[in-house]
Amino acid sequence: MIRFSLRIPADLHERVTAQASADRRSVNSEILHLLEVALSSRVVDAGSPGGDPTSPASLHGKPDSSPA
């Protein structure tokens, strides 16, 4: 297993921590679960009409990266 550091905003960490608690998982396990779900939905979306596998809604850039 690969180990790396990840920086996330405090509010996102709070949301992940709350979801992990609700799902009775560690924060690490919750992040792995969410990544697996997001990445597996890309495969499903690719086959649907209009599905764009290159831009899943939950994996866009930083929240503040939209043009002003």
Rank of each mutant, 00 (worst) to 15 (best):
V37C: 09
D45F: 03
D64V: 03
S21H: 13
G47W: 04
H60Y: 04
Q19F: 08
S21Y: 03
S26W: 01
P49V: 03
L12G: 00
H13F: 12
L59F: 09
V16Q: 04
N28A: 03
P9I: 01
S21K: 14
T17E: 14
V43P: 10
R15L: 07
D23G: 08
R25Y: 06
H13P: 00
E36Q: 11
E36M: 11
P67I: 01
S66E: 15
H13I: 00
S41N: 15
D45K: 08
V44F: 06
V43I: 15
D52A: 06
I31M: 07
I31H: 01
V16I: 15
S29G: 04
R42V: 11
V44T: 03
D64T: 10
D52N: 15
S65L: 01
G61F: 13
A10Q: 11
D23Q: 11
D45S: 08
V43T: 15
S55F: 05
R3Y: 06
L35H: 02
E14S: 07
G47P: 00
A10F: 04
E36L: 12
A20P: 07
S55D: 14
G51K: 08
L12R: 02
A10T: 12
R3E: 10
P56S: 13
A18P: 01
L34D: 07
R3V: 11
T17R: 11
T54N: 14
R25H: 12
R24F: 01
P63K: 02
L12W: 01
D23R: 14
L12M: 07
L34K: 14
R24G: 02
M1K: 12
P56C: 11
P63I: 02
L35M: 11
F4H: 12
D45N: 13
R15P: 02
S5K: 05
S65E: 06
P56D: 11
E14I: 00
A10P: 07
S66N: 08
V37A: 10
L35G: 03
P67S: 01
S21A: 12
N28Y: 00
V44N: 03
L59S: 09
E36N: 08
H60S: 14
M1Y: 08
I8E: 06
T54L: 15
A46T: 06
G47Q: 04
L6S: 09
S65K: 00
D52S: 10
S21Q: 14
V16P: 02
E30Q: 15
S66W: 10
R7M: 03
I31Q: 02
A57W: 09
G51C: 05
D11T: 04
T17F: 03
R7E: 07
L6A: 15
R42G: 01
P9Q: 14
H60T: 09
A18M: 05
P53F: 12
G51P: 06
M1F: 08
Q19P: 02
A38R: 07
M1P: 06
S5C: 00
V44K: 05
D45R: 13
D52K: 07
L6R: 02
A38S: 14
S40F: 00
R42H: 00
A18V: 00
A22F: 06
Q19N: 10
S58D: 02
V43G: 11
K62I: 08
D11C: 01
S48C: 01
R42Y: 00
T54F: 13
A68R: 03
